[in-house]
Design a protein around this nucleic acid. Sequence first.
DNA 1: TCCGTAACGGTTGAA
DNA 2: CTTTCAACCGTTACG
Length: 360
Amino acid sequence: MSLYSPAEQTYGEVNQLGGVFVNGRPLPNAIRLRIVELAQLGIRPCDISRQLRVSHGCVSKILARYNETGSILPGAIGGSKPRVTTPNVVKNIREYKQSDPGIFAWEIRDRLLADGVCDKYNVPSVSSISRILRNKIGNLSQPNQYESSKQASAQAGLSYNHIYPYSYPNTMSPTGTKMGSHPGVPVTAGHMSISRAWPSAHTVSNILGIRAFMDPAAITGAEGYGPKMEDWSSVNRAAFPASHTVNGIDKSAIDGDIKYGQPSSTLSSYVSACAYSPTNQYGVYSGPAGGYVAPGHHHWQPQSPTLSHPGGGMGMHAGEIQSPMTFKHQAREGTQRDRKPPTPLNLNSVHGLNLPTSSS
DNA sequence: TCCGTAACGGTTGAA
DNA sequence: CTTTCAACCGTTACG
């Protein structure tokens, strides 16, 4: 799909509940966040599922993950984690080699075990060590930036918190038709495309995207749905609302972002735990404002509970969700008979679902 | 009816 | 540059 996609086709499919999703891709952060927030308001998962039009399996998964890790973010997709040849291992191999240039690969292997660098489960094979020697350490005199960059964080275990690594191809739309118009966007800098990148033009598309997202009808209707996946995704990402404190659920942040822009550092808590960030290549969205996001950490490892990290600067237009759902309470309200009317807050207001679009 | 989870088809990105 | 491969995704269906 990458190359080009049929523009008219919507990017995304519609699930049984009428929600739009992109197969293989994570739900937009804004929706993920909304799921968590609604759950915290006491809304049952099944209701959340219906309201947001996200499969219950997904709601269940996101909530479970949130409970476990404290993060609403999806895990890192793609790439391959350094399995045995972690930077630390490479570093050690290099050291062994430097101190004894004639050392055999099997000897290195034994030393890695002996020194506790690796255990029997993750020690590289002799052939791997040979490859490392050949490919990464071949010329000891060279600085080898690879390591320097990663190595640091590498074994730390905790280093990964970052924002979701969505990398996003910034290539805006290949098609160019719609977006082409504003080429300004930086393709170059992969990172940040998100937040800053979205000046106006995107906005529109975002909106479309968004709407489409939630409202299938819109999609179809809008032939435009211009933003193809990428944009879409960007939307998503960007959309990350911010609020933090899950408990408190302050939407203020969100609102804020609705206004666009504000970097909301707030979402940190939600975001934080996300998985690692891939190399710093795309940097992760350093947000507009933020520049936080230190490139350095990425680390593989399952996410951990630690979380809060200022990472976030994504720009978000949280708005995304808003429109879609607007929570049609209709359905539910009618049936309110449920059990506890959990919503003290009124769903509608929950997130500020107000659609800023119109106003602003 | 609700919810956890496996299967499935998909995307991604490091190696 | 292309291919592999392992990670994750959300939906669906089942129990």
